[in-house]
Design a protein around this nucleic acid. Sequence first.
DNA 1: CTCCAGGTTCCGG
DNA 2: CCGGAACATGGA
Length: 280
Amino acid sequence: MRLAALPAPDFNLAATLECGQVFHWRRSGAGFEGSVGDVPLFVEQRSDCLLVPPDCEQLAQNYFALDHPLTEICATFPNDPAMNAARVFCRGLRIVRQPPWECLATFITSALKQVAHIAQISHTLRERFGERIEWQGHTFFSYPTPKRLAECSEADLRACALGFRAKNLLGAARMIAAGDVDLELAAALDDNAARAELCRLPGVGEKVANCALLFGFGRLRAFPVDVWIERVLRQLYFARKRNVTARRLREFSASYFGEYGGYAQQYLFHHARMTWRGPK
DNA sequence: CTCCAGGTTCCGG
DNA sequence: CCGGAACATGGA
């Protein structure tokens, strides 16, 4: 089919989709196929343009956050060796705008899982409980809604290889389906209040809440501290320092990396993961 | 076989 | 507030 060309300067599609912020895109030919909410999408990069199906330009422009002032964002990063290396390595990587629920739910299922496993779980949940979307001879599945997951039993979810995460995903889906937690209301709160609201959900602690805030709620200052980032902070920012507590790391990262700390975090995360023990 | 993975929660100092 | 342990599953 004919594709439309969308100007996308200062953008790296592959890095953006494979850096561990989103898990359901698959390589397809020279591009990627996936979905944004319930809209199927194919996207391919040609130098400074994105090729997308006609009438999808606006959707892609928004989803891939082509309006983020990347040069300005990178200029706000602290000037230190670790950050500079990550900034060069991740050039063109953008924090996409994921639908809040599927982002939050995916990170609830991410606890103590490798990126490949998280993707596997996401696809299984989509195929079993999401909406099937046929498009151009390809089959896509949307992420199941809170309502749909709330109707499942814990055993249904455990059957998707969720392990102990099944109870958390189910509990979160039920609280949201019941209106006990309202993601649209949370979206109107400031960062700290929104984080506190998300943390009321089972399986959502500081780290998962920050991932949801950063990748699903557009809070570009949110700084998730996972095992990789903790290694980066301890080895590159607190080298030869003893007894650095988790709280100390959180306080440091919340201020040191600035107003676009979430971008800085993702660059440090991706760079460390890709270089510290061979690309995978 | 052992170790670890984009953590959260609960429990005892 | 802090460090430990339990919690499932699969790939390295």
